[in-house]
Amino acid sequence: MLDWLKNINREYPGFWKQYLQKFEHRSKRFVIISLENSGQNPDKDVIFSIGAIAVTENSVSIGDEFEVIIPQYKYLHDNDISNEFIIESKLEKQSEPEAIEAFIDYIGNAVLVGHRIHFDIDLINMALSKLQCGRLKNEALDIEIMHRKLNDLPEKPFPLDELLRHYKVPGTARISAADDAYSNALLFLKLKSKLGIN
């Protein structure tokens, strides 16, 4: 509430206004996201790449996909880390503002899904605040919590690998954030039908 009061007179960037307008309708689209990042502290850490893929009508739409690499030259330089792997990657590279803008355009009002998604959302919110935008408004579902709910399990960490094995999701080489998002999407499909979410 306070946020809203504070921001009531603030002028948002255009893409953010468009994003906000999309929330007039509820979405039937799920977007599974996965980030590669330097860590989970929103104040210090940065996003290296974003992979996302959409699930609609109980199936993964391969075409409805998003992947981007953000070469965080400054962060790498500050922390004295080699930036070779990012330079060598053949995937599209964008600066953080461009990448975040494209990402916001892509997700729209979809329900976000991910493994321990709150960390991802915190990081994205941080990146958004750097662009003078508000926080993400999307609903979010956490795969780990879905698994716990389904099986009535106590608070115990379930790493992604373990879940993939448990639900017999066929192994793909999980190299990039996009691969992770795809594996997560398959996992989500199974959990979704088991939990009866529509």
């Binding site: 009508e57 109980n58 199936s59 993964v60 739409s61 391969i62 075409g63 996909e65 499909l189 199974k190």
Partner: peptide, 14 residues
């Protein structure tokens, strides 16, 4: 072609 594919997951006996 692949980028138009939709992936469907079937439970056992579905």
């Amino acid at each position: 072609i692949a980028s138009e594919i939709r992936v469907v997951s079937l439970e056992k006996n579905q």
